[in-house]
């Protein structure tokens, strides 16, 4: 039996529109799902003062030195590719300076008197790194 194309099934402008909509939706879905990233993004330092996030510094390239102040104390922080160090602080405890350089996602430097927290997120996952540290 010869195939006869019904005029009704010939693609028209509406079909093109519907196909376009489907393609766009598929792309949007993909972006939404992949954009979530599973913690494999760039290593980033999140600085918060008194519980409020004030800055995000990506550590892909050297971001240099920055100064943060909280609760009357001042911290001088070095951002380098792959690591963050508090170089100088005028607090009495100096715990933040003693912490040294943090390099892995999940690690943080804390200045209790200044209520400043610098925490690393993203970067490659390290299977041997603990989820939580006591001490």
């Amino acid at each position: 039996m010869p195939m006869r194309r019904s005029p009704k099934l010939r693609p028209n402008g509406w079909d093109a529109l519907v196909i376009l909509a489907v393609v766009l939706l598929a792309a949007a879905c993909a972006v939404t799902v992949w954009g979530r990233g599973g913690g494999t993004g760039e290593l980033t330092a999140v600085v918060s003062i008194d519980g409020r996030e004030v800055e995000r510094v990506a550590l892909g390239s050297a971001a240099g030195e920055r100064v943060y102040a909280g609760n009357g104390y001042t911290l001088t922080v070095d951002f380098e590719p792959g690591g963050v160090t508090v170089r100088e602080a005028d607090c009495p405890t100096q715990d933040c300076v003693h912490t040294g350089t943090i390099t892995r996602s999940g690690q943080s430097i804390v200045c209790l008197p200044g209520r400043i927290i610098i925490q690393l997120t993203g970067g490659p996952a390290d299977a041997s790194a603990p989820d939580v540290v006591i001490g």
Partner: peptide
């Protein structure tokens, strides 16, 4: 299970001394 690191007292200043 969760992996819990016990800080190494001898390397208290090291962020990854267990």
């Amino acid at each position: 299970p969760w992996r819990v690191g016990i800080q190494d007292p001898a390397r208290a200043d090291a962020a990854d001394g267990y």
